[in-house]
Simulated scan of single mutants.
Amino acid sequence: MLSPKAEEYIQLGIKTEPFTPTKLIRYLSSKYKEKFWLGIPDLLNEIDINIKPTLFYQTEEWGHPDEEKPSENIFFQSLAKAIELNDVSVIRSYKSNIHWSNWTWSDFENQEED
């Protein structure tokens, strides 16, 4: 049985009042990340592919300015170049801003109804 305490939310930077489903998902994904994302073997099994690809590059953090198209983003441009050249050393990453705390304005409960 899962019974998170208010202190656990606070340690993750999640305010508990008012409580919303978004805050519960943030807590769960922070504490039980492995339950939310498939590992490579599970992913390949799920899509029923019997190959063993070589991992080219993996990250969980990158900088993505608001209102910028991926094609305009330096990280994604350098990732495309790295794939073209088969060289991960050309990937340029900047300060990551994809953590949920940077995007609370887009939370469901903050959106206006039409």
Rank of each mutant, 00 (worst) to 15 (best):
P18F: 01
D114Q: 13
E60F: 06
K81R: 13
I25V: 11
I91W: 06
D48V: 04
E68M: 14
P4S: 00
A80K: 09
S106C: 13
T22R: 02
S3W: 03
R26P: 02
Q58E: 14
K95R: 15
I83M: 09
R92P: 00
I10S: 12
S71G: 00
T16M: 05
E34N: 06
K69G: 05
K95Y: 09
E72H: 12
V90L: 06
F108T: 14
R92V: 14
E68L: 13
V90T: 09
S93I: 07
V88W: 02
D48Y: 05
T59G: 06
I49G: 03
S93E: 14
P65Y: 11
Y57K: 05
L12R: 04
E113S: 11
I98M: 15
L12C: 06
L79F: 04
I40C: 02
E17C: 04
S106Q: 14
F76L: 11
E84W: 12
E8A: 11
Q111R: 12
Q58F: 13
K69Y: 03
T54N: 15
S93P: 00
D42A: 12
I25F: 09
D42W: 03
D87L: 03
Q58N: 12
F56H: 06
K33N: 12
S96Y: 08
N45H: 03
S29Q: 14
I47Y: 01
S71C: 10
Q77V: 05
S89L: 12
E46Y: 07
L28Q: 03
W103H: 15
L44T: 03
H64W: 15
A6G: 07
R92I: 15
I14Y: 04
E112I: 15
D66L: 13
D66E: 15
P65L: 08
I25S: 06
W103E: 10
Q111A: 08
E61I: 08
K31G: 00
R26T: 07
K33F: 11
L2C: 00
D114H: 10
I14L: 05
E67H: 09
I14Q: 01
A82G: 04
S78N: 03
S30Y: 01
I47H: 03
S30V: 00
E7D: 10
N73G: 02
F19G: 01
L38I: 05
E84H: 13
I49V: 13
L12D: 09
T104C: 10
P70H: 05
E61H: 11
D114L: 11
E113T: 08
L24V: 07
I47F: 04
Q111Y: 02
Q11K: 13
I91A: 07
E17K: 13
A80S: 10
I40W: 04
S93L: 06
P41I: 03
W105K: 15
T104Q: 15
S101K: 15
L43I: 09
K33S: 12
T59L: 10
E113K: 08
S96I: 02
G39Y: 04
E72V: 02
V88Y: 07
I51G: 05
V88S: 15
W100P: 06
F36K: 00
Q111H: 05
V88R: 11
V90W: 01
